[in-house]
């Protein structure tokens, strides 16, 4: 059990938390934050797990660090894109959740919009 493994287990916990948050929260911003927490957890696992054991001295595997850097950029891009979309979505509809009643025009009257939970994704 090296110190690096602690990071990995921290990542595991973050991952689980992010996952739960993503499923349970319906506000889009919160969902996005939960996604980012999940992402951070995975990056931690990637870096922490990569350097366990072996002969190499700890902290000296540059590959996962580079991977995580790439991963972070991708996650940042995706987050930024999602934010732009959410802002515009909010601007157009005034909604912060992906509610279902207006999913398409085909289901209009047979649902009571009040009775439905704005679901998790």
């Amino acid at each position: 059990m090296s110190a690096h493994l602690l990071y990995a287990f921290g990542g595991v916990v973050l991952c689980g938390m992010g996952l739960g948050g993503f499923i349970l929260l319906s506000h889009l911003l919160r969902k996005l934050l939960a996604f980012n927490i999940m992402g951070s957890g995975i990056f931690l696992i990637l870096v922490g797990l990569a350097q366990h054991g072996g002969g190499a001295e700890p902290g000296m595997d540059p590959v996962p660090q580079a991977l995580v850097l790439t991963g972070i950029v991708v996650a940042v891009s995706a987050t930024a894109l999602a934010l732009v979309l959410i802002r515009r979505y909010y601007y157009l509809t005034g909604q912060t959740v992906l509610e279902s009643s207006a999913e398409s025009g085909r289901r209009n009257n047979d649902d009571d919009p009040g009775s439905r939970k704005d679901g998790a994704l």
Partner: peptide, 13 residues
């Protein structure tokens, strides 16, 4: 179908 649409990630897990 609507339930599934809202539970995609849960179902995946």
């Amino acid at each position: 179908e609507r339930h599934l649409r809202h539970r995609t990630v849960l179902v995946m897990v």
